[in-house]
Write a protein that binds this DNA or RNA. Structure first.
Lengths: 102, 102
DNA sequence: TCCTTATATAATCGTTTGATTATATTAAGA
DNA sequence: TCTTAATATAATCAAACGATTATATAAGGA
């Protein structure tokens, strides 16, 4: 893991809204529209957060008709995995039954 | 570990100069003056980076005459510890024999 | 006590970040 | 094909960040 990637991933993680996104994604795929409700910010803002996570290799996307579903990437680095493990213990996921809502 | 602390620590970690600082501190105490050389930035800039790390609970300071020595804090959180472990594998420490230079 | 040295704080400034609104794109359905 | 819905991109802007220079603080030594 090179230092540039480490810094990029840490910058992607260092935002409370993006931590909430990851907290939601622990339990599976979530579509963009759900994040708008959960985070309470505009749809373009959500889209930009997801792009930053994607560019850091932390999430992947899957197109499903008009909707786009995001999930945690495969083979996460130890740093990202540790953050997600800590989120498990910390943050009550506010995305209950998100799978059903889209 | 609450979410605010997690975000604060991640923000403190998400900077290449501060990662270099931590890489140096892996092997023990380092005084401020050494960081000026290692990072190639001004003394006030170094001071501000160290303050940010201290406020995140990642480093502690110890006054030694005119000099001030910084070291890694006791009981690091899993996230900080993982970042430091990754630095071990990644970044060649540019602080060789820093202990002797002050 | 005065001067020097190490460090911290204050003021300032250009760049980056995270939000918004407006607009573009793309797929589904009438 | 036209309209609607979901998402992305562009433009913009205020706030945060990271650097600098200037200044303050504090400890040691002549």
């Amino acid at each position: 893991m090179d230092i540039q990637l480490m810094e990029k991933q840490l910058k992607a993680l260092a935002d409370s809204n993006r931590l909430k996104v990851l907290s939601c994604l622990k339990s599976g795929e979530v579509c963009v529209c759900d994040f708008v409700d959960v985070l309470g910010i505009s749809q373009p803002a959500v889209s930009q957060h997801l792009r930053k996570l994607k560019e850091a290799g932390i999430v992947t996307e899957r197109k499903r008709g008009t909707w786009k579903h995001y999930r945690l990437a495969e083979g996460l680095t130890p740093i990202v995995q540790t953050v997600i493990d800590e989120l498990e213990a910390t943050m009550a996921c506010q995305c209950s039954s998100v799978e059903a809502s889209c």
